[in-house]
Amino acid sequence: MTERAGEPLSGREPLPGPREVTEIMVSEPISELKVIETPELTLVQEPPQGVFQPAYQLSTEYELPPGYGETRIVLQVRDPYWLHAYWEIARETLVELESKLGPSSVLAAQKILRVHDITNLEFDGTNSWYSFDIPVTEHANNWYINVERANRSYCVDLGLKSQDGSFVLITRSNVVKTPRDGVSEVIDEEWMTIEGIERAVQPAGRGPSSPEFVREVSEKREFLMGSEAITSISSPGRAMLAAPRGFWLKADVEIIVHGATDPTARVTIQGVPVKLRPDGSFSVRFTLPDGTQVIPIEARSADGAEVRTITTTISRKTD
């Protein structure tokens, strides 16, 4: 592994147990859907005017089941040093364990995750390079697992560890492989064309003197993992202004010029045309800055023969 790989990419500080603890670990036989979507099509109707309609409350609520009535553990990679496991133990499995070990020893045993490093191995349950145990709490159904080495394959056994130290396997996870956290130690080069026909191991002719180039480039430039970017459009749905600190007051002044004339007339305010409503009325709103505004309002009949003008002067002064 490389020097720069040593940078803590993901924070190695221990995570405090599972974040999402669900009380039910032994799942009930499936009753997966609590609520069924109502079939009636009444939802297309417009809600009554002015009735508050929260944007994201559909007519139905699905509640997902805590589990699916099966015994399994699934392992996923979070980053080079962290795995995530979720699991479920079916009721039958517990019953089976109790009949095998006796209810009291099941109760007394500690539920553990046994994490195996099985890189490049045909794992037979015992031959891992190394393994370590994580005691998990009774009702936990998922866990973040810190592993020491990147670019390794892992699998996890969920089981019971009894007080005498013996281990009973409940279920074994899938195998995952963590990614590298630095440049590869493998420097053999193979080149090929897009057809892949002339696969040939061949050193490139001219070029950087060694594959150190990669390291050079990645160290030379400030290397950022992932973007600290502005996030996607999904985030600014409500681009709220931060409220000012402390007691505060904001004030501004707007005025409304409104009136009515013959619906066929042409009206201008300060020489700028105004759109009339079908009944000949009009209304325009202005933000009024400090100072004086002279506001001529002019209506001209459709044939241009008649003109009426009303002029208003208004001034504002803010101290």
Binding site: L9, S10, Q76, R78, P179, E190, W191, A204, G226
Partner: peptide, 22 residues
């Protein structure tokens, strides 16, 4: 440039910290 080096990329994403954590 039809001729290129053969190499298997590493698990990665462009999310914060570069892997699956987001």
């Amino acid at each position: 440039n039809p001729r290129n080096q053969v190499s298997l990329p590493s698990l990665s994403s462009w999310g914060y910290k570069g892997y699956n954590e987001v």
